[in-house]
Amino acid sequence: MRHRLKALAAAAASVPITLFGLVLVTFLIGRVMPIDPVIAIVGDHAPPDVMARVRLELGLDRPLLVQFGIYLNHLLHGDLGRSVMTSHSVVHDIKQFFPATLELAIVAIFVATVIGIPLGVLAATRQGSRIDTVVRVFCLAGQSVPIFLLGLLCLVIFYVKLGWAPGTGREDVIFAGTIPPVTGLLTIDTLLAGDWDAFHDALAHLAQPAGVLAYFSMAYITRMTRAFMLDALAGEYVITARAKGLSAARVVWRHAFGNISVRLVTVLALTFAGLLEGAVVTETVFSWPGIGQYLTVSLLNADMNAVLGATLVIGISYLLLNLLADAAYTLMDPRVR
């Protein structure tokens, strides 16, 4: 246990170094991109004197290392700079865009976990059966169908044809700008505002994009659960448990699943982290104003403060989730205890 805690502490200590590396690499990539960041601000038609002034204002005339030093200094003081695309501070933008993605990812990972793990266990315990085949095909489709196609299909079926779900966006136009942002999670904020209609509307808007992401994640979680379980069910300790006359449910859930749960935590943590940075296609199809869209638009417009800020937030999320997974290992792995 002490050894494990030491490893955990070492992992935590490496976070600042990893973040520094992340910021440095992103910064350098931003500066060597074949896009002039000044054009992103002043446009193609601006006269040379305006472009020269903005170049000076951005500090782009200085050596690269000096520019990085200045950025780092501001960063340590909590200043991520100003986004040229939104005219707001990057901190303000992240507070606006990141919760939208977080809300989507939380619901998606919850649904994917609740359905994906039992499905994986079921398929593994019925290996080779029709149920197993159906689950495998279901997972294969979830992993191989392009997510934008799945999103559009959902919109056509559930929104256009059946009318069960609302269209794109986070909320209906009648609620636009009416809910004061507290947490940034619209479902929570609508509850805090005591507006039940807005809450229902937010939930309804969440269902489709979260459902699409959930299906995508569930396919992976189910596949991994099935593979882990098949491995575990073939273990000698499982045969021993069966030979001892334990019930099938006890063998599967207590002995086999108990053993794979540690590995599953890593799968879940990485899947969740993937949702935080990889939801951009879903966000585009469903006009969901999340961090993925923010990062993509910023990148295409060479809005480097925004790109660095968003990358940093996603990087921190990844590292934190990794740390959490490591901590969970420590708590769950009996060999460590």
């Binding site: 559930f158 929104y159 009318g163 069960w164 779900a165 609302p166 269209g167 209906d172 136009v173 009648i174 229902h200 509307d201 939930l203 309804a204 808007h205 969440l206 269902a207 459902g211």
Partner: peptide, 12 residues
């Protein structure tokens, strides 16, 4: 979640 907010497909 899927049905509660079934949208009224008309702008106000």
């Amino acid at each position: 979640i899927g049905f509660a907010g079934a949208a009224e497909a008309k702008t106000p």
